[in-house]
Design a protein around this nucleic acid. Structure first.
Lengths: 340, 340
DNA sequence: TTAGCAGATGTTATCGATAACAAATCAACA
DNA sequence: TGTTGATTTGTTATCGATAACATCTGCTAA
């Protein structure tokens, strides 16, 4: 079952082609000056034997690698998968392969992933900025030998480069949107704020912006529920039951907002006439049909692209600015009034 | 910026602890018999220096690894992320780290990922069964040195183990559901059937089951559109415009079905009175509210768990059956009549 | 004819760990 | 006191590649 066919090494390819190991190595990497005839013979031998390079040996020896580590909190969250596709689109054509780790928002899991990934000496490592990082993780990162980039968060300074939105700004934008519409009884619905520091920062920014105008933000959050539609629905129900006077809700993300909307619709609470709703991240825009959620859109794929570009530049030892701020746009849908 | 702090090797830890390299290696791996006092000194030295093992060297030398490669078509498809979480839940406690690759349903990308992953000599490789595999990929796999497992598809025989549903059976189940309700004008809505072979197999099974009863299945598919809600909506609109007589629709997956439902709802076509709708994969069940889609549920997380367990057994050189068939359950919601 | 040089290929040392075996230590016991 | 055997530690070879340098062609030009 398991250890099957013999593993072919460079030496065997070399023997078959009648040249030295080194020549084979050069041919297969496209390095050095090798005659066309030798190249042909070597390639043929490698093909016939089905040679598969051993990256462990190659990277160990050259102290180089074409592997890029990406660690994200959740692969099912569409936000991250879009960032990732920007990363892949940029790195693959340049010959780099991304290996993904999923931390599930758990700092210990993230730490183990960082350890495992770094122990393969990757060409670079991309991490999500929005979560607490263990001391172990910090010290692992401090001793890394490759560039490290923080995704999805440009507020906190860390690592060599950051690509993402300012979550502070996002919170302020939502506050302004509500204030301009003279909404006073405002609530926030979220989940896992203890883990998702970016969401927490948006929440705090909203709260403080409102407080500056004398408005007290009501927050309904669940730390142990997923940041998904079901939870949005559930918490909205709780919220509306306990505080029927609420006029506006900002949700942690679009998915939760859609869940909340489904409850409001069923409960016969007209949106936006009775209650205004604002989401975050723009992932709902592609699917919007009758209900076009007012949300904050941001270039998710581009965040990945910018991060990957910065990585490539750093690998090439070029100097790079240390941050790319993703633009935020509050997109007016039909879940808040087109006041103003 | 990039190559920073000096890399600490085993030798340096050994020097500081006043022992040999080998002793350090044994301590850190928990191998061999090492006295408590030596263990303490070594661990302290490693800590103080911030030693991070070099897996390239370690795996090369031992010809072993704790890395498991997983290659899935799409990380944003919730089906795969649930399978993956079953895999992680099983492998992590056993000290294995999964590295994920995303093929985007592209055979060439999959091939490159297989090449990259295998060149790190992983402990095992898990691949999605539902897509075409290039000849290069087949030959890479034929020469692998680790167990390989096929996910999400138990029909096609390949690799050392398969965990997944029978897609044939799924197609037959849907056919039976329609037939029992005496529905005659039946349509199928899907996308990317050229890439997703599992979906194609379900489609064919449905078609042939219906044909056996003299019913001709109408198929509306788009090869270049994502298998998501938007596409479901769009194709449903096309379908209903061109064939207003349709009585039942089976969708490729739940996401597309929900998209289709949103159109039917808007178009004023009552479900299930006028049109019955059936999805596939059960991912909508968690979020179901008013609309409870009739769908085929299957244990997605468990598929990952079974696959991972089989892998562990194969690594341990135990004998393993070569397939685990995931049970399928047609779950009656309120998008088909509760006839029968 | 031969130095000089570019192009093509080979040699040797090395990357950083582990396997397999060897050696040293030590307690217990005849 | 010396032998035995278990426990602990160290030595040497090796994993499979690449870097850096060495060597060997063959050809041009003085």
């Amino acid at each position: 079952m398991s250890p099957r066919g013999k593993v072919i090494t460079l030496q065997e390819v070399a023997d078959r082609a009648g040249v030295s190991r080194m020549t084979v190595s050069k041919v297969l990497r496209g390095a050095g000056n090798i005659s066309a005839e030798t190249r042909r013979r070597v390639k043929q031998a490698a093909d016939e034997l089905g040679y598969l390079p051993n990256n462990l040996a190659g990277s160990l020896s050259s102290r180089k690698s074409r592997m890029v580590a990406v660690i994200i909190p959740s692969i099912s969250d569409i936000v991250f998968s879009e960032v990732l596709s920007g990363i892949n689109a940029t790195l693959r054509p340049r010959g780099y392969q991304t290996f993904i780790g999923e931390s599930g928002f758990e700092p210990e899991t993230e730490t183990e992933l960082i350890r495992a990934m770094l122990s393969f000496r990757p060409a670079g490592i991309l991490l999500n900025g929005g979560m607490a990082r263990s001391a172990d993780a910090e010290s692992l990162l401090a001793r890394r030998t490759c560039p490290a980039i923080q995704l999805w968060d440009c507020d906190r300074h860390a690592l060599d480069f950051r690509a993402g939105p300012s979550h502070e700004e996002a919170g302020h934008l939502v506050a302004r949107h509500f204030l301009e519409r003279r909404l006073k009884r405002i609530a926030y619905v979220g989940a896992e704020l203890d883990k998702d520091l970016c969401a927490r920062r948006r929440h705090l920014a909203l709260k403080s912006s409102l407080a500056a105008e004398g408005i007290d933000l009501l927050s309904v959050t669940a730390e142990d529920k997923p940041r998904q539609a079901v939870t949005g629905r559930l918490l909205t129900e709780q919220l509306v039951r306990a505080h029927p006077e609420i006029e506006a809700i900002h949700f942690l993300n679009d998915a939760m907002a859609l869940g909340g909307l489904s409850y409001l619709h069923e409960a016969g609470l007209p949106v936006p006439e009775r209650i205004s709703v604002v989401g975050f991240n723009g992932t709902s825009l592609a699917n919007a049909v009758r209900t076009r959620l007012t949300t904050i859109d941001l270039p998710r794929t581009e965040i990945g692209e910018k991060a990957a570009q910065a990585l490539l530049q750093m690998i090439a030892e070029e100097t790079v600015p240390d941050v790319w701020r993703a633009p935020l746009a509050l997109v007016q849908g039909n879940t808040t009034v087109t006041d103003k």
